[in-house]
Amino acid sequence: MEEVSLLKDIIKIYSPSEKEKEVSDYLFNFLKKKGFDVEQDKEWNIISKLGSGPPYILLTSHMDTVTGEIPFRSDGNKIYGRGACDAKSPLAALLSAFIRFKNKKFKGTLIFAGVTGEEAPNSRGTLELMRKIKADFIFLGEPGSVDGITIGYKGRLLLKLIFKGKASHSSSEEENPVLKFIDFSNKISKLYKGDNLFESLSYSPTSIYAQSDSNVMPSECRVTIDFRVPPGLSHQEVLKEIKVLLDGEIELVEGVDGVITSKNNILVKTLVKIIRENGFSPKYKKKTGSSDMNLLVRLTDNIVTYGPGDSSLDHTDMEYIDTDEYLKSIDILEGAISEILGIASL
């Protein structure tokens, strides 16, 4: 089956961030051979369009993966390999659904975009895409299972901090930068606590460096902290609060706000309906990570994330996708896009 072959082919191409050229070339040639107009831009994004005029419906997912190659293998319905889950099966599902519209008549523009750089800070592919396209409705492809509708992601604030001290005898009264960090940590970890993890500011130091002889205070303590910020709380507000509490230097590496789409949004309601029509019980998902949805929402509030795969396998060595789930998700996407085209054209 061609839709499964496409999936297998792109999983076989190892494509960590910054090394997406081969998979980008593959998709460019794949679409060209099928007779689609296709563009490969300077960030190696692949963009193809069907139809013309409004409404503009964007189907997008990322072609890059995290690093760490996993040998490709296929075992019955299961396909193993880096990106099988995050996000080559959602990417192939969106592309397959897009291809099914080639010979259909509809009013509007369907845009497929395979983007680069999602797994690296600052999503260079999506930012470039956003500079050149319009979108009234967006289906973002990320794993969430065939029956899952991801309506929200937390924002992110990635900071590098430096706590300064003075290299001095460890028995002296000089300020120890490690203790300064611990004091800061105790204060910051109590901020913005909600009823659950999604609604709370999460605080995760991901590297700490301070070194000296055993009887000498270190002169500085360098810390990287990955904050995940709930929707409704701006990362700028958190940054302001941190600056008040911080006795040290600060470098902003990445800052993006959280996103939440209403359960009453037309895309969400449509997916609920189509998932049921395909025999599944829909579930809403709110994710404590972040994705390109956090950026794409700047184009339109009509945005939802959907795709096959178990997101608990994201970035692990156990990534796989079940082809039955993958194929079903293409049917669901085709149904949802048809419904939106119908509704939006009224």
């Binding site: 659950n196 809403y284 998902k285 709110k286 990570g289 972040s290 997101s311 608990s312 994201d314 970035h315």
Partner: peptide, 8 residues
């Protein structure tokens, strides 16, 4: 139902 999940 609504689930909290992680990822991406």
């Amino acid at each position: 139902e609504e689930e909290e999940d992680w990822g991406e």
